[in-house]
Design a protein around this nucleic acid. Structure first.
Length: 457
RNA sequence: GUCCCCAUCGUCUAGCCCGGUCAGGACGCCUCCCUUUCACGGAGAGAACCGGGGUUCGAAUCCCCGUGGGGACGCCA
């Protein structure tokens, strides 16, 4: 069998959303699974809506997700150019073929593609006008995901605008022909266009590619498919919020596809190995950010220390640059590593660790009320201060032993000291283990915080 | 309105093609355990075959009709 050639063909609108990302991903997966070629083609025929900087959004998002393209802008290839705005000569050539075959006509200054079949006038309720329907021999698509889909009625359509620029349906097909695309994997919203495309392929005497229409991603709240304006729709948002791309990719793979067993979190190499078109679902999937968050946490948790520090550093440079600039790298590393097992996402990290980087942290009033309201917190505090002055701070276990010894010596539990110590040192009741916190902060700072807190009472 | 696609827990889904296992897993929610923080982890609870007709000894699974959801109907892509 000939080598698989698939393409992802976005139009540079300035946005790159979840749906596009998954379409790109499925194309990429299929190319990688079959040892085929993944092509990036820019569909920028609509001059009014395109801009150079919008291209960067596409490149950046694809690269961030790890979806490298074998042919396309910035990658080269033998079937270029890969931007439609640079392919005018090719479209002109194919337009001539269509004209020569007698399959075009002009109307209102635009060039239309003439369908074969019986014409009839019918009033269209949607467009509030009379249109010409063409009944033809059933146009059959043998979709790799949906099976046989057929349509017996269509309408002629514009292929070249009155300003001379070719239109999507036409350029899309010409490009698929000239770029030797073997499989068209795209969203189901294109399914109704497909009969038009098939007729174009036939009229141009070109083989019709295999089609695979993947289900759509529905917005998490409310009706309809997800679009750029919806909550959580943009890839750049996840990038900005510090999500791990490998987690997002894994999650996206599971929207409309599964490995056939119960596995969910899987390395990309394994997904590539198992991914195939017949395994793709037919029904639309609703986007669930909660599940994505869970996947992200799972990936975060198992990140090796150095990789984790790289990620947190990158995130802090954008979200909290002053923290990184001021902090000692070794200290920053210790704080991050201490927090890693407790995290749900990088996003919460700056707030979660804020008190490590400043002496000017606030004390949560509610927590204070709760902690100071029971037992003898002031006494515990005084005892803690004495302990910290001389305790062995060399390791977590040393600190833990010291604290436990103090507690048992007084006939109390570890928790009686832990809660007040945590409040004094961090201002809250959530955080990493108290012993780790003590060790990382160091004796002097812990002592200072305990003393100050005790004095303020 | 016309045409096209789809239909299993709240959500993502396995099972459907090749009818017969208490309809399985994950996220979320709730309870308990672990941990005297918060998480993680572990155990458990609750939760679904859209409806109606067929076919069949037997239907989540095959067929038809409803209903519901989604999409398309641009000189956008």
């Amino acid at each position: 069998m000939a080598q698989v050639r698939v393409r992802f063909a976005p139009s540079p609108t300035g946005f790159f959303h979840i749906g596009s990302a998954r379409t790109a991903l499925f194309n990429w997966l299929y190319a990688r699974h079959t040892g085929g070629v993944f092509i990036l083609r820019i569909e920028d025929t609509d001059k009014e809506r395109n801009s150079e900087q919008f291209l960067k959004v596409i490149y950046d998002s694809l690269r961030w997700l790890g979806l490298n393209w074998d042919e396309g802008p910035e990658a080269g290839g033998n079937f270029g150019p890969y931007r439609q705005s640079e392919r005018a000569a090719i479209y002109a050539e194919y337009l001539e073929k269509l004209k020569a075959a007698g399959r075009t006509y002009e109307k209102d200054g635009a060039i239309w593609f003439k369908l074969l079949g019986d014409r009839s006038e019918v009033y269209d309720e949607h467009r509030k006008k009379t249109v010409t329907k063409v009944k033809n021999a059933p146009s059959v698509i043998d979709d790799r995901i949906r099976g046989r889909v057929e349509r017996t009625e269509d309408e002629d359509f514009v292929i070249v605008r009155s300003d001379g620029n070719p239109v999507f349906h036409f350029v899309n097909v010409v490009d698929d022909i000239t770029m030797r695309i073997t499989h068209v994997i795209r969203g189901e919203d294109h399914l109704s266009n497909t009969s038009k495309h098939v007729e174009l392929f036939k009229a141009l005497g070109a083989p019709v590619p295999e089609y695979a229409h993947i289900p759509l991603i529905l917005k998490q709240n409310g009706p309809g498919k997800m679009s750029k304006r919806d909550q959580g729709a943009l890839i750049e948002e996840y990038q900005r919020r510090g999500f791990l791309p490998e987690a997002l990719v894994n999650f996206l793979c599971l929207l409309g596809w599964n490995p056939g067993d119960d596995r969910e979190k899987m390395p990309i190499a394994e997904i590539i190995r198992l991914f195939d078109l017949p395994g793709v679902n037919q029904s639309n999937a609703r986007f669930d950010e909660k599940k994505l968050a869970h996947m992200n946490m799972a990936y975060l948790l198992e990140l090796p220390a150095d990789r984790f520090i790289e990620r947190t550093l990158a995130y802090f440079r954008k979200a909290s640059p002053t923290t990184v600039a001021a902090a000692d790298p070794g200290f920053f590393r210790e704080v991050m590593l201490l927090s890693q097992p407790k995290l749900k996402g990088l996003e919460e990290l700056p707030a979660y660790t804020a008190y490590f980087f400043t002496e000017d942290y606030s004390i949560d009033a509610k927590v204070r009320e709760k902690v100071m309201g029971k037992g003898d917190p002031k006494v515990r505090l005084a005892e803690l201060i004495e302990l910290v002055k001389t305790a062995d701070f060399s390791s977590d276990t040393a600190i833990e032993e010291a604290l436990k010894a103090l507690a048992t010596g007084k006939g109390l539990g570890f928790g009686d000291y832990q809660s007040v110590a945590r409040l004094a040192v961090s201002g809250t009741n959530v955080g990493p283990s108290i012993t780790g916190m003590f060790r990382v902060l160091g004796r002097e700072r812990v002592l200072g915080r305990l003393t100050r807190f005790a004095a303020a009472r």
